[in-house]
């Protein structure tokens, strides 16, 4: 009996610190987002804080505030959601395409320096997002930037990659930085998964005279599909995060209109706590929704080996 009690004590003291910290610094802030989105918060006088139901959401979606309508509010939210979705989709497609291509080359082909290539491709993933922003500011710099130097070599005129006014080019520039950052990570994930595919499957198809491209679409891709779907969910979360930090660091105040992403709107509204939290709820819903849709689109019959 004493032994059982000892065990309970040990379990309790081993778990308590972690559970308390997890509760205080992860669960509470998350709950606060959902809870405070239903309140109009008065920062200076807590007693003035009142429950307003879905009012914050109505304001965000219609611009209706105290009887008047401000059309900029829903417009900004819509733009930032559109931009976020654009980045998730574009960056997602390009990153996964390159990552799968590189992973299958490095695992399937008998080439030299494979290890060196793997080491290099993973480097962007170990850099701080601030460093990546700095690197891409140097690449996109209008006067002496690397990209303009490269296209100048081919006789093209310099482009203002991060310039305002032309909405799409800033977003594509951001997307470029995000792909650069993400490819290595997903490549390594897919390499681990690809190396478990039994060699005899490829031998059998080679015996039947199948080409490399046929092999890729009929063996590699179907067997990798499960891993791809798992990584997609994490990809959505990390892209929403990355786009926020990149926009904050790279575009700064200029991203007021063109390149805003959803979390950026939340940070801008932080003094009006109710709105900010309502935007937070929208972000959660958005990332959950995108994940669900992606899951549905990518649903295939799973193959086992």
């Amino acid at each position: 009996m004493g032994r059982k009690k000892q065990q309970n004590l040990f379990v309790f003291f081993a778990l308590a610190p972690a559970v308390i910290c997890f509760f205080a610094f992860m669960i509470l802030p998350t709950v606060r987002i959902f809870l405070m989105s239903l309140f109009e918060v008065n920062k200076y006088d807590a007693a003035q804080t009142k429950f307003v139901g879905l009012n914050n959401f109505i304001t965000l979606f219609t611009g209706k505030i105290d009887g008047t309508i401000i059309p900029e509010i829903p417009l900004k939210i819509a733009t930032s959601l559109k931009n976020t979705l654009f980045l998730v989709v574009i960056v997602g497609i390009i990153t996964l395409f390159i990552a799968i291509l590189m992973a299958s080359i490095l695992v399937r082909e008998n080439l030299k320096f494979k290890n060196l290539f793997r080491i290099i491709f993973y480097i962007p993933n170990i850099l701080s997002i601030v460093v990546i922003a700095g690197i891409f500011q140097a690449i996109y710099e209008k006067e002496f930037g690397l990209l303009n130097a490269v296209i100048g070599f081919f006789g093209m005129k310099p482009v203002d990659w991060l310039g305002t006014g032309s909405n799409t080019i800033v977003l594509y520039s951001l997307a470029g930085a995000m792909v650069w950052q993400a490819v290595g990570y997903y490549m390594v994930m897919y390499m681990a998964s690809l190396s478990t595919i039994p060699e005899h499957l490829y031998e059998a198809s080679a015996l039947e005279g199948a080409g490399k491209i046929y092999e890729f679409f009929h063996i590699t891709l179907p067997l990798l599909w499960g891993t791809i779907r798992t990584t997609l969910t994490f990809f959505v979360v990390s892209t929403i995060n990355l786009s926020f930090v990149l926009v904050t660091v790279m575009a700064g105040s200029r991203s007021d209109n063109e390149a805003s992403v959803i979390l950026f709107e939340m940070a801008k509204q932080q003094s009006v706590q109710g709105y900010a939290m309502a935007i937070g709820v929208i972000t959660f819903m958005f990332s959950f929704g995108v994940s669900v849709v992606m899951n549905a689109i990518t649903k295939r019959e799973t193959y086992e080996f």
Binding site: P29, Q270, M277
Partner: peptide, 12 residues
């Protein structure tokens, strides 16, 4: 993600 909760964390 840490970015999702940074604003409520600050308030808290």
């Amino acid at each position: 993600n840490i970015s999702y909760i940074v604003i409520p964390m600050l308030i808290q």
